[in-house]
Amino acid sequence: MMKTRIKELRARYNLTQEELAEKAGVRRETISFLEQGKYNPSLKLAHNVAKILKTTVDELFIFDDEK
């Protein structure tokens, strides 16, 4: 299970999903799926989003170990 801090950091920087999508060069739906942990992004997209939100990939995406 993957959790992300995208929503939290997006709110901190006052960005809408659309604005973040525009900056990352993806569709708004992709950001929505990412926020809900329903999509595993490529390393490049994860890096881009982390860079936009001024954080690192491992701080942005948290993986719960599957039991």
């Binding site: 993806v26 569709r27 992709t30 799926f33 997209l45």
Partner: peptide, 14 residues
């Protein structure tokens, strides 16, 4: 509408 807003219509997920 997406294009008008400056968004892409294709990305890695699509």
């Amino acid at each position: 509408l997406e294009i008008k807003k400056g968004l892409v219509i294709k990305d890695e997920r699509t």
